[in-house]
Design a protein around this nucleic acid. Structure first.
Lengths: 330, 330
DNA sequence: TACGTTCATGTAACCGGTTACATCAAGACG
DNA sequence: CGTCTTGATGTAACCGGTTACATGAACGTA
């Protein structure tokens, strides 16, 4: 019942295992008659090579380990789509390990990938990468995605979160808004921190005063923040949420309260989830090319694995997408 | 530079490889002094076991291969989330292989998983499973998700697409709609076919006449279908789209044309993507518990891999979610 | 003291591939 | 006809773990 091995095929074809291997890997130096015998035997036995054994003897797994945080929706699927597209081109598979409760668990998960992948793509916005990699064989190539951390030994793909946040604030100011409240992301999240930093910087530059309501990237956080803003009636005339889901949560609250979003109240998010375009009024936001990041991450790690020089890429600049929630202006 | 192997640890600790293996796998029959020596050596060398070699000698990869179609958004991420949750519990990893252009490529992808995974979870609504598995070692356990096909040798997780479609039509009829148009999914897709079948069955049962516009699950297909309906003005008073994205495309067209969706025009989708709740007017649809399906798929395959009897599960029944697009009725 | 147990440890085979090197037959050439 | 070259094929070591079995020390018993 166990599957046929290369030795079974060799026996069936009355040749040596070396010959079978040569035929199956398309080596030259095999006579046509030999090729035919082996292929026939292989077909008769329904032979499929054992990828695990192959990668052991070649010291090449043809797989990339991917560690992601607890991503949701489009964000997750677009990222994986981008990686998968390039992985298919490069003949690589993706070994997924998501959503780990804590750093210890994450380290454990990375360890179980040793000897099973040729490289790692790690996105861990709330885990210290130094800690993450200190327990790992340094010979395993890895790249960090969007971790916004300096001085790591590993190549990184950066998104210019801070600059993008400034762009958003500049746009809100240009549209006539002056009292811009920021709904921030989770405290330990480096992307969230960078966005808040950009917000503060831009507000300061315009001579305005910052105001931050702590959020956590969830729609509920946006709902809560908007309710708080309505309750206080403290002159806030625009909201910049650190991601779209919180912006959507806020939008629904404003809409239901009869606030003219895009008119008296400006609103902007971050990410450009598909929903941003479809909700009404449609949401001004920064578009991040998630699939592109995933693709770039994979081509980078593939290059490193192949021993090519890793093209250290410059930060990705998200694109400002102006929609109805800031269109009318004030 | 190459990573330390178990033999390096054995040499460093001046013991045999068998002892190292015993210590690291927590076997009894090791004296405390031995344990300590090995652990110290292992730490000194930064040793991490080679999972590939381990799985070769144990004939157990502790990984599950997952093959998915070109899924988008929440659908994909929720499904993976469900699997991942259970996989973490069971100590399994997920080897992903998405989005294959054609059946041949899909078969190839499955083959490269041989010897690398202990089982397969396959969702391939537009590939004939018989074809898919005919080229595979029959010893590799596999389960099919939502393939709606009879007489397969592999256990399946079914979603009652046909029954759910009937539920939707019944609801539309109960809300007063009579000329219900169906926007179908892609032609070869078995889920889409089952939904259309349910639609036709229910419409026939109510003594109404069916009308189907061919779609392909994309938002654009919904846009096109709705435009066609408006152009024809042929008395259609409700639309049942085979998925939410098409329903959303249609909704936007109707809304922009000033048609009262939920009043004079009923509209229902299928899937309950997050957008369905957030769009305005919010969309009546059938909720499918995607994460639950993923989780169930993983527990099933894990059970089979462990040699437990596979609990052959009954079809999942989606839940009717009534929202504004059918609320007012006619 | 001689002998049988028990138990920690070591040796070597095995998982299923790849491949360096050995082997050997056939053809080239003096 | 003998030798050298060439090229197809076979043998066995190796990738890095696990583990059945061999080994031998320590101890109990007569």
């Amino acid at each position: 019942m166990a599957s046929a091995t290369i030795r079974d095929v060799a026996r069936e074809a009355q040749v040596s295992v070396a010959s079978v291997s040569r035929v199956l890997n398309g080596s030259d130096n095999v006579r046509p008659e030999m090729r035919e015998r082996v292929e026939a035997a292989s077909r008769r036995l329904g032979y499929t090579p054992h990828a695990g054994a192959r990668s052991l003897s070649l010291s090449r797994a043809h797989a990339i380990g991917v560690m992601l945080p607890d991503l949701h929706g489009e964000f997750f699927s677009e990222f994986v789509r981008g990686m998968d597209r390039e992985a298919a081109k490069a003949g690589l598979q993706l070994l997924l390990s998501n959503m780990h409760a804590d750093a210890g668990q994450a380290v454990e998960a990375l360890k179980t990938m040793r000897g099973r992948v040729d490289g790692l793509i790690v996105m861990a916005p709330d885990i210290d990468p130094a800690l993450l990699f200190s327990h790992l064989p340094q010979s395993l190539p890895a790249i960090l995605v969007s971790s916004d951390c300096e001085g790591s030994a590993h190549p990184q793909i950066q998104v210019d979160n801070m600059g993008a946040a400034e762009v958003i604030v500049d746009h809100l100011v240009a549209s006539g808004y002056r009292n811009i409240v920021h709904i921030s992301g989770p405290a330990g999240n480096r992307e969230a921190v960078a966005r808040e930093h950009g917000y503060r910087e831009a507000v300061r530059r315009h001579g305005l005063s910052p105001r931050v309501i702590q959020g956590d990237f969830s729609e509920e956080a946006g709902t809560a923040a908007a309710s708080e803003i309505l309750r206080n009636r403290d002159g806030a005339d625009a909201v910049f949420a650190a991601n779209d889901m919180m912006a959507v949560g806020a939008l629904v609250v404003f809409r239901d309260a009869g606030v003219a979003v895009g008119g008296e109240m400006g609103l902007a998010g971050f990410d450009d989830v598909p929903l941003a375009r479809l909700i009404s009024p449609s949401l001004t936001t920064m578009r991040v090319d998630i699939a592109g990041i995933g693709a770039r991450a994979l081509t980078m790690i593939a290059a490193i694995v192949n021993g090519d020089t890793a093209p250290d890429s410059e930060p990705l600049r998200p694109e400002l997408i102006i929609r109805q929630t800031t269109k009318a202006g004030k």
